[in-house]
Amino acid sequence: ALNSFKIKELKGKNAADLAKEIDKEYADAGDEYPKSVIIGSSEDDAELYSLPAVNWIAHMPEPILYVNKKGIPEETAQALKKRDGKANIYILGPKKAVSKTTEDALKEFGTVKRISGDT
């Protein structure tokens, strides 16, 4: 049934790497990297805060990129650098999911807005 479709499998060595590859696909499809990105945590205890991104991504050409408790993974930094310091960055989750330190570090790549909630 899928013979008439072109299928491409994307792989990554971790969540941040896979997200970077998906981000590149957005850019290839739209001839440029989307200026807006969603930032979520790849940590098990915070991943549910990223769940609302499913609806957002389904309606907007904006990717999700990941951070973790250590900060900004290199793969995420590489993807954000493609926006030349002009990204619109939306963090999903409270400070317990994505730290204030990581939020401040993300400002190097553009404007940062946190969308938060207790749960």
Rank of each mutant, 00 (worst) to 15 (best):
T76S: 12
V54E: 11
E75R: 05
L48S: 15
K96Y: 04
K70M: 10
K100S: 11
P94L: 10
L51V: 15
A87Q: 04
P61F: 00
K82S: 12
A79K: 04
A97V: 04
I89D: 04
H59P: 01
P73V: 11
D84I: 08
A53E: 10
I89A: 01
K86L: 11
T101V: 14
E62Q: 07
D104W: 10
Y90I: 11
M60W: 10
P52W: 08
I89L: 07
T76E: 10
D104V: 05
K96I: 11
W56S: 10
N55G: 10
G85Q: 00
P61G: 09
Y66M: 09
Y90P: 03
Y66C: 02
P73Q: 12
I64A: 06
A87W: 03
K81A: 03
E74T: 14
P73E: 13
I89M: 01
G93Q: 05
S50I: 08
G85R: 06
R83W: 11
T76M: 10
K82A: 12
G93M: 09
L65W: 01
P94A: 13
V54M: 06
I89F: 03
I72M: 08
K81Q: 08
K95L: 07
A53S: 15
R83Q: 12
Q78M: 10
S99C: 03
H59L: 12
K96L: 01
K69G: 09
G93K: 02
L80D: 02
A58V: 02
E75A: 13
K95I: 05
V67S: 02
K69P: 00
V98F: 04
P52N: 07
G71C: 09
Y49V: 09
K70F: 09
P52V: 04
Y49S: 08
P73I: 09
N88P: 00
M60G: 00
I57P: 00
L92M: 09
I91T: 03
N55E: 08
A97D: 01
W56C: 11
E74H: 13
K70P: 01
V54T: 13
I91S: 00
K70Q: 14
A97P: 08
D84F: 11
E47H: 14
V54L: 15
A53H: 11
V98P: 03
L92D: 02
A79G: 12
D84E: 15
G93A: 10
A79T: 04
K70R: 06
E47I: 14
A97G: 08
A97R: 02
N55V: 14
E103S: 02
H59K: 09
D104F: 11
E103V: 04
T76A: 03
L80R: 10
L80W: 06
L92K: 04
R83I: 02
S50A: 15
V67D: 02
I89Y: 01
K96E: 10
W56Y: 15
K95H: 07
I91K: 00
P52A: 15
P52L: 06
I89V: 02
K82Q: 13
E74Y: 07
E103R: 08
T101C: 00
